[in-house]
């Protein structure tokens, strides 16, 4: 039986009268790559932020490793990590300095061990030659890879990725996805992956959750979704769901994935 690492129950976020996330429930299992899809403003990033305790939920529960943030914030955040194409790292510092700081914050003790871990990850993401470059001088693609290295420093059991390949060119994006998959296979890491890129989601995710207007409107493997909506690509499924949003969708009513 697969081990459940994330359990979300009736998660809701309201900003005033606007409901950004509406009673969302789903689980994620060890070693799973779970895709969070949806149009702009659908609520996927807000969901991600609540899962990371960056935004407080209006109601509902989030359990990671059967623990809640209220009682075990430090333990949870020591076992997960996050990367997004919308964040950065201090630009004045060099790549190696930034990664060293974050490694220390994650409690990776011993200069030698830190160096080994950082060197190995930089080699994997092909950014070894950038070690002594100022982060300011990096291209957005290079910066994304540095942020991904940061996200793997603590050998996380769950990785939260918000559009991680948005600023990468197709070749590097493809390499990055393959790398993430191989890291998942090797380390049994679970990845919650948010993206607009349907082809990417189809390629990398084991299971997909489609969010629209704050509710889960569809869920399943890419194959299941294609079959259910009788379409040939996820992009067409995406368009179909988006256009029919607000229609009588049983999954939307329950919000259950």
């Amino acid at each position: 039986m697969k081990k459940r690492v994330l359990e979300v129950e009736n998660l809701t976020k309201k900003f005033g009268k606007f409901t950004a996330v509406d009673s969302v429930s789903f689980e994620m299992y060890e070693g799973e790559i779970l895709g969070l899809m949806g149009p702009n403003g659908a609520g996927k990033t807000t969901t991600l932020h609540m899962l990371l305790d960056l935004t407080t939920a209006t109601s509902g529960t989030v359990k990671l490793f059967e623990l809640g943030y209220k009682d075990a914030r430090v333990e949870i955040l020591s076992r997960v990590n996050f990367s997004s194409s919308y964040i950065s790292l201090p630009s004045t510092l060099t790549v190696i300095e930034n990664l060293t700081v974050m490694a220390r914050v994650y409690g990776i003790g011993g200069a030698k061990r830190r160096k080994e871990i950082i060197d190995e990850l930089m080699r994997l993401f092909e950014i070894t030659e950038l070690a002594k470059h100022s982060t300011r001088g990096l291209s957005s693609g290079q910066l994304t890879r540095v942020c991904l290295v940061k996200a793997l420093l603590n050998r996380p059991e769950i990785l939260f990725l918000d559009e991680p390949t948005a600023s990468l060119d197709p070749d590097i994006a493809d390499k990055t996805r393959r790398l993430l998959k191989s890291i998942r296979d090797e380390r049994k890491i679970s990845i919650l992956y948010s993206s607009h890129n349907m082809a990417e989601m189809e390629e990398i995710c084991d299971r997909l959750i489609f969010i629209n207007r704050g509710k889960i409107v569809a869920t399943g493997t890419a194959e299941e979704l294609l079959k259910e909506y009788n379409e040939k690509s996820l992009e067409e499924v995406f368009l179909k769901i988006t256009r029919s949003s607000g229609s009588d969708n049983k999954k939307a009513e329950t919000g259950r994935a």
Partner: peptide, 14 residues
């Protein structure tokens, strides 16, 4: 300025 807050508050630092 360096858009580093999310790195900080998604880390174990309280």
């Amino acid at each position: 300025w360096s858009r580093n807050l999310l790195n900080i508050f998604t880390s174990p630092i309280s």
